[in-house]
């Protein structure tokens, strides 16, 4: 029975790649996929360290307003809430995309869910861009105070990550159209999904520490 090779229960994201290939090939593809994903985890963890240092810089700059505008004047919580909604929803649709890829093996469905994810990512980015412009128009530019430098650096680094995730997704659309859902394209989509979920986790830190605690202080 072909399915018995596939392991028991919900297993590691992206392990079950190919259903049509013979068992030995599938085994090999799975090992390669696991290695690729583990390597990507190492990258994500190094990224985590970058973000934690940006967070801690932000924390040490918490009171360094230098007489400039602070979180009360600059932050729009409802905008941050909508950004959270967009990013959370995109994480979910990204998960659905990987399900469509691994279980339905349908290129059209996979691309549709990733396209929705991309759309939500762009919604997030445009809201964030709008936030940045509002902040700047109120005099909250990065050079104004230590606190503003730290918050721009932190939020914009996350924004740049989301932007590169969006570009990555566009490239993967081209690759999927060109190569189909072959093992390499599948592991790349899997890594993209890991990246996307990871960015959502960073965003939890940003809205909790920067926006919510900022407005409270």
């Amino acid at each position: 029975m072909a399915q018995s090779v596939q392991g028991k229960g919900p297993s590691h994201i992206g392990i079950r790649l190919s259903n049509s290939a013979p068992a030995s090939h599938r085994e090999e593809a799975r090992t390669q996929a696991e290695e690729a994903l583990f390597g990507f985890w190492i990258f994500l963890m190094s990224d985590l360290i970058i973000f934690s240092m940006l967070f801690v810089t932000y924390a040490t700059m918490g009171h360094s307003l230098a007489g400039g505008p602070g979180p009360h004047e600059l932050f729009d919580l409802s905008s941050a809430a909508w950004e959270t909604v967009a990013l959370l929803a995109s994480s979910f649709t990204c998960g659905l995309a990987t399900l469509a890829m691994r279980y339905d093996r349908s290129l059209a469905k996979t691309l549709l869910w990733f396209a929705i994810t991309l759309f939500l990512g762009l919604v997030f980015l445009s809201l964030e861009l709008h936030d940045f412009m509002t902040m700047a128009s109120k005099g909250g530019v990065p050079s104004r105070s230590g606190w503003l430098s730290a918050s721009w650096a932190l939020i914009a680094t996350h924004g740049l990550h989301v932007t590169s995730g969006c570009i990555w997704m566009l490239i993967m659309f081209v690759q999927a159209a060109k190569f189909g859902l072959d093992p390499l394209v599948q592991t790349r989509f899997m890594r993209l999904a890991l990246f996307w979920h990871f960015l959502d986790i960073i965003w939890i830190g940003i809205f909790s520490i920067v926006y919510l605690l900022g407005v409270l202080s």
Binding site: I171, Q175, K178, F179, L184, R188
Partner: peptide, 8 residues
Amino acid sequence: IILRSFNR
């Protein structure tokens, strides 16, 4: 890098 990713 992007072009490289198309190289199989």
